[in-house]
Nucleic acid binder design. Structure first.
Lengths: 234, 234
DNA sequence: TCTTCCATTTTGTGTAGACTTTAAATTTTT
DNA sequence: AAAAATTTAAAGTCTACACAAAATGGAAGA
């Protein structure tokens, strides 16, 4: 039989399974009927059941193991998905006017802590770029970035006075691997000046390391203005 | 023909497509060949190509639209997936011994800010639970939580002296919806005491609101010990 | 020139069936 | 008993095909 209006779709199955989990009908650790049985129940093929259950497992509701079957996860390992927005988009989403300003850009040998962090050879050349992102005239983010020149030689010709290093990199270098860290740091004198907050103020901070096929490309520290909150729903 | 060792799998296709994107062969905004053409190239069915491309789109590399085709996303909206670990797991993963201590638990009318945040009726009863999570004898996290009694009536009989409210809730109440926020806050006197840090210290903080079918269930603020970093790779 | 409508292309999803892989469970051997 | 080999159940993936749905681009009409 082919797909008609009365066909059970994989989305319906997902919904139904979720409802049963949430209603407590299928408690945590419960073993679900196997795909074949569910296919009979939903009057569809095993393929369709498979897709529904596979996606629910991806989303962290179920655990599936060959031969062992499918069971409801006890502590739903729900994973928050943060879509890291581009600064410009984030500013404009709040109704602000995005403005960018370059603070400094210079080539220098990598400081020891950076060399250690990125597994560089000591003294390897990096471009150090510092810049500000504003929402209107209010500081939004201070960006402190290092770019490994050997990995992105074109960076020596780049002009960061009009375009932010992140935008430039996104356009220029693909990447394979990102390590993202969130933390709370304290505003030192310099940072306090840039962000226009009192010295010692807690500052929400994101660190981002980007690799291209095992080669370190860039390390960025992004300091957000006071009161910044990173939110996600799931 | 059936699946043999020389069959191209959807995983191979994903790899190949990714490689082409990363190598620059398929630049951002490039329109990919359609599924039928790729199926011919990879000597497989369109179904298999479809799965590969669908997953890559889910992962944020491609954008797909009917009739318009599949194209490489210009600014890869890579999404960070944080798996929010249970505190116990997190402590034990670092080799520490997890210890839990209840600080206080009392039923009270919801404070105004909480009622506003959770859309409660003013003065609705909530259980306010405060507790500490330790790694060995080192403070790891201070948890400040409110539980809406109307949504979880059993909470009045719960005993939080031995089990943390989060563990209890996970076992007791399914949930449908979570809002998670990260921010940097400042340690006030109380918090500084619990976390054993100087007053005014920046503290990495997570707020979590949980809903069950539109009903607010719980609001939790989790204050992490000094130096805490939340990291993910993708 | 502008709008409306329609054909066409491309992805989306389903059916039916087969073979593959993993690992749990059982049996056999030591 | 314990270890090794075998069976077997369940998910994983692929083929081959069909129809559905969306949206683009062009044609027809105003």
């Amino acid at each position: 039989m082919t797909q008609t209006s009365d066909t059970t779709s994989y989305k319906d199955i997902k919904q139904t399974v979720l409802r049963r989990i949430r209603s407590g009908q299928w408690q945590p650790d419960t073993l679900l009927p196997n795909e074949q049985e569910l296919a009979v129940e939903f009057s569809c093929t095993r393929t369709t059941v498979n897709r529904a259950l596979r996606e629910l497992a991806n989303e962290g509701f179920l655990e599936r193991r060959r031969k062992a079957g499918t069971r409801v996860l006890s502590a739903p390992q729900r994973q928050a998905r943060f879509t890291i927005p581009l600064v410009r988009d984030e500013v404009e989403a709040t109704g602000g006017t995005y403005r960018y300003a370059l603070v400094s850009a210079e080539t220098q040998p990598a400081p020891d802590w950076l060399a250690a962090r990125l597994a560089l050879t000591p003294g390897q050349s990096v471009m150090h770029v510092r810049c500000m992102h504003y929402s209107g005239n209010t500081p939004f983010q201070f960006e402190d970035r290092w770019i490994v020149i050997d990995s992105v030689p074109q960076v020596e010709q780049a002009d960061f006075s009009g375009i932010g290093p992140n935008d430039w990199l996104v356009q220029t270098v693909p990447f394979t691997n990102v390590e993202l860290t969130f933390l709370a740091s304290r505003a030192d004198t310099t940072l306090a000046g840039f962000l226009d907050v009192p010295e010692g103020e807690p500052v929400f901070t994101a660190e981002r390391i980007t690799w291209l096929q095992g080669q370190p490309v860039t390390f960025a520290k992004m300091y957000f203005a006071a009161g910044y909150r990173m939110t996600t729903e799931f």
